[in-house]
Simulated assay, not measured.
Amino acid sequence: MKNRQTVLTVALTGLAPTVWGSTYLVTTELLPPDRPLLATTMRALPGGLVLLALGRKLPVGIWWWRALVLGVLNIGAFNFLLFVAAYRLPGGIAAMVMSAQPMFVVILAALFLGERIRPVHALACAMGIGGVVLLVFRGTASLDTTGLLAAVGGALCMASGITLTKRWGRPEGVGLLAFTGWQLTAGGLVLLPFWLSLEDLPDGLTGSNVIGFAYLITLGAILSYIAWFRGIERLPAVAVSFLALGSPVVATLLGYLVKDQTLSALQIVGMVVIFLAVVLGQPRPPGPKSEGTPSAPLRTTVSRLPGRPALKQERGG
């Protein structure tokens, strides 16, 4: 029963990176063009406010700054750096650098959570990076230093966010809706000044824009982050980090299915390698428990004493 629950938790948590993998397609096809910060801010802030209204609970005491830190790492800074990297690096390089994120979590989890570094984790990290390289790499090109630093920073933000969310946990008496709302709101508020200062407001919104924003707010933020933070609570941090490798796989498949992009044999191999890396990174089911040495059967003997017989039970063997 416990193994089945773990598999269901892994599957539900993996839905979050699956949805996030569709963000690029939704942004390019449905949202106003060339406004990535608008898309990111609109995904985080309205969803966070909706969850705050439903959860009806604000942070208290130390959780004001903890919620801010988690919101910045998991959402605000992570998304900002991700978009910087995507715009300044050639195709696929940002995803390749971001694929190092599980390796960072393995190290941070060992330092701050006491999770043991296992050889299988090192193997899974290498396979994950290799699989993403096969999936997205398109030849050599000059690399932008700012873009590389942004990609590394984004990977570190995500790894740190997963680790700290696991270490601090969820405060007692606070529901998952409110806890997720804190982080989305904090991340959205951090992104807001960057959006207003770096991008122009769109002239108007079309029906496609409204559908795209609705998708990002509901599936891309509210439902996906609830599943994500629930998974961090119930799974080892390292296991959650490997699930994030599903995003580039979904993005590639959607590009092939929706935008008629090519899908090479090497890319298919890369997907298989990524899948195996994700499987290797998940918690191992416990082995069968030892039953110990069975008790020797009871042997009943009759001791004849003066007056009446007495029954006595002894351990045989």
Rank of each mutant, 00 (worst) to 15 (best):
I211W: 10
G204H: 13
T218S: 14
W168E: 08
L176I: 15
L196C: 08
S142F: 07
G220K: 02
G175T: 09
L184P: 01
D200T: 15
L135Y: 11
F179E: 04
E199W: 09
F137A: 15
G204Y: 06
A214K: 11
L143Y: 09
T140H: 10
G212M: 08
A141Y: 11
F179K: 00
F194S: 08
T165Y: 04
A159M: 02
T180N: 11
A155Q: 07
I211P: 00
I222S: 05
R170A: 06
L219G: 07
D200S: 15
T140D: 12
P193V: 10
Q183W: 03
T206A: 10
G147I: 04
L205N: 01
K166P: 02
I217G: 05
A214L: 15
F213M: 14
G212F: 09
G161E: 04
L216E: 12
G187L: 04
L177H: 10
A159E: 02
V132N: 05
L135S: 10
G153R: 09
D144C: 06
M158R: 00
V133W: 14
L198F: 14
T180L: 01
M158F: 13
G153M: 05
P202C: 06
R138S: 15
P202M: 04
E199R: 09
S197E: 09
L149E: 01
G131H: 03
M158C: 05
V174A: 13
I217R: 02
L219Q: 03
R170G: 06
L143I: 14
A186V: 09
T185P: 02
F179T: 00
V152L: 14
